[in-house]
């Protein structure tokens, strides 16, 4: 038993070592915000992720690409423990945020999700006013005590999401009355209103038209200054446009992760090559 445990620890250590050398070898000197080591996810008896190792760098946009069902969204949802809401879902391995194990016993999921926000595939504003959509998060976290402060938080969040000018005269109207692109920006504004450190985006543009998509992409680029962003996308051009790092997932494995430019111009693995050139996926 003990021997086995030892080997396992050794292996993990070796892997961490390898990953660290890999990181050190990279040109990018940004700090590691989140870190995944040997992450395995099971839905009941079915294994969805087969041991993912990945570093998420601070103030960088990491794009997760890969064919449908390869585990990108599953991995994303591990990062703020949204998988907890799914029955029979089990997560193994190490996931850290600023060096703290997010599946550890000490971590509180409410606090974690306040630090790691999420934007979903389908815009999902609350069926409340635009104002209340933004103010809800700050309110439950006690971030603004006075009405004035709250107004400021709401305005700032909407401005950063590039939505302020469009909705400033109708903050009392329901958020569900906005167009799809506006709703998604409202959801981004709602996510940044609670000042998270990391924002996870699960195909945020898949339900939007090209103009709304362009809006959101610009927005992601601006948000990078203050937040660490992980984005799942099916759109390779989008990954190339908005991200600095790209990770390619395939059948529950992380095939390779590198600078976006490197992945798209000079992929090391032939599966990556096949996917980005459109041979399958």
């Amino acid at each position: 038993m003990s021997v086995q445990t030892e080997t396992l620890t050794d292996r993990t250590a070796a892997m961490t070592q390898a990953a660290m050398t890999q990181t050190a070898a990279r040109a990018d000197t940004a700090a590691i915000k989140m870190l995944a080591r040997n992450v395995k996810v099971y839905y009941g008896p079915k294994q969805a992720l087969k041991g993912i190792n990945l570093d998420i760098l601070e103030n960088r946009v990491l794009a997760l690409i890969g064919p449908s069902g390869c585990g990108k969204s599953t991995f994303l949802r591990c990062l703020n423990r949204m998988n907890d809401t799914i029955e029979n879902c089990r997560v193994d391995g190490t996931l850290q945020l600023d060096g703290e194990d997010i599946y550890g016993r000490m971590i509180d999921t409410v606090q974690l999700r306040a630090r790691v926000g999420m934007v979903f595939q389908k815009p999902n504003p609350f069926p409340k006013s635009i104002y209340d959509n933004i103010a809800y998060g700050p309110r439950i976290h006690g971030m603004a005590t006075h009405r004035d402060e709250m107004d400021e938080v709401v305005q700032k969040s909407l401005e950063r999401a590039g939505l302020w000018n469009e909705v400033k005269d109708r903050l009392k109207e329901p958020g569900t009355g906005l167009s799809g692109g506006q709703q998604q920006r409202l959801c981004i504004a709602r996510a940044i209103a609670v000042s998270p450190e990391v924002i996870l985006m699960d195909e945020p543009c898949s339900a939007l038209d090209p103009i709304a998509t362009a809006h959101i992409e610009e927005l992601i680029d601006e948000l990078r200054e203050n937040f660490t962003i992980v984005i799942v996308t099916h759109n390779m051009q989008q990954a190339a446009r908005v991200s600095q790092k790209t990770a390619f997932f395939h059948l529950g494995d992380m095939v390779e992760c590198d600078d976006t430019e490197e992945i798209f111009t000079n992929p090391r693995d032939e599966r990556t090559q096949g996917y980005i050139t459109g041979r399958y996926g």
Binding site: N80, M82, T85, V110, Q111, R113, A114, G117, M118, V119, F120, N124, P125, F126, Y136, G137, I140, H141, C187, R190, A191, A193, V194
Partner: peptide, 8 residues
Amino acid sequence: EAALGIGA
């Protein structure tokens, strides 16, 4: 998900 996602 929306509510849980912002830490409710």
